[in-house]
Nucleic acid binder design. Structure first.
Lengths: 203, 203
DNA sequence: AGATGTGAATGGGTTCACAGCA
DNA sequence: TGCTGTGAACCCATTCACATCT
């Protein structure tokens, strides 16, 4: 089944806040409370949760623990092994950030082509020369990469990693990648993001 | 008129690639060419461009120069003054990145609360203590900020800056901000982004 | 009383398909 | 021939509204 991107993104957010709630000792939650924590509407949340194998009760809402389990069951809970390509400022920042906070995935390898960037450790993650990508990716079963490389090489690097078995790319380079359409690409161009917000600040 | 977020985002992307094309000496472009550069479909592009005050010709497509002018006219072309709050790794990376590449905006001031982070210069941008935000924001007419602060202070900082006149926030903290609903908030949580891509790599 | 679960209605964005044109 | 401009059709996501449950 082809699932909606928007919905998956929301469900991922529900899971994060539910995990926090569980840690904080909360056992139950109503859709309107989850709404306040995620900026989805209560109706949307109930709708998203419909095809989970847990249901809530009018009296006590949803059981946090069960809901987390259902979400894991729905979207998968394997601790995903991810690689990052490009260890400039942005790459290092993302690595620190993700490895410091995510429950559900880990950046396990970094890659670059500059000799002073390889064979280091950043946020508990070893860095390699890009030419070793295929070998490491196969060993680790890496199917997802974060691309934080300069625009001029982004297409080449994307082709290289997909040839090595990568199926999904989170692309921070402001360029449209052309890849086989069974590869999932998410663009997170930061400049567009700021320009967009600047536009709406004025309108 | 309330304009669609998606559409504005696409138009911002069209502008960026058009500026590049103009620099490269291209004078004309067809919708299918712009499509290859932006991952919008040709029909979508023609539709987006409908309410611009330029139209294309079947024989030569759109005139790049005119189209840029129309887009500027449509969404505004003032070089927007933006501030960034939180000068950790991510904040510094974004500042370098944006100030090195954007045509249409500039990060003109950075803010932090740690004494070792204030009174520095990052990417041509002076850093101040957060307590001076209101003063600087008023002087500079800052209406847009990028938030790269820890989760636990994000809500407080967001309230502080909106009190000082900010109208739009690009929020990198993985938390849902509660603000007056005439404030535009765009969430770009990086962990969700990676988790989403990891999900679709497997599906 | 106040919440969930959900069919039905709504609304908005995207794509189709084709007339008009160089 | 092959593109633009655009009404109409389509499709998908969100919201409404209410029966149901505790």
């Amino acid at each position: 089944m082809r699932r909606s991107e928007r919905k998956i993104e929301r469900i991922i957010n529900y899971r994060r806040v539910l995990i926090k709630l569980e840690r904080a000792g909360e056992t139950n939650i109503f859709s309107h409370q989850l709404s306040a924590l995620t900026n989805a509407t209560p109706a949307q949340i109930r709708r998203d949760l419909m095809e989970m194998d847990t249901s809530g009760s009018p009296a006590h809402g949803y059981v946090v623990k069960d809901l987390i389990k259902s979400i894991n069951n729905y979207i998968g809970a394997d601790k995903e092994q991810v690689a990052i390509i490009g260890l400039g400022n942005l790459g290092k920042a993302i690595t620190n950030y993700v490895n410091g906070s995510s429950e559900n995935l880990k950046i396990v390898a970094g890659f670059d082509i500059k000799s002073e960037k390889v064979n280091r450790v950043v946020a508990g993650c070893h860095s390699y020369h890009l030419q070793d990508f295929e070998k490491i990716a196969k060993e680790r079963g890496i199917k997802t990469v974060i691309l934080t490389v300069p625009v001029r090489v982004a297409q080449d690097v994307a082709e290289q990693v997909t040839k090595a078995g990568v199926r999904g790319i989170l692309n921070y380079a402001p360029v449209n990648l052309h890849l086989s359409d069974d590869i999932y690409v998410e663009n997170r161009d930061m400049i567009s993001a700021v320009e967009k917000v600047a536009y709406f600040s004025d309108h």
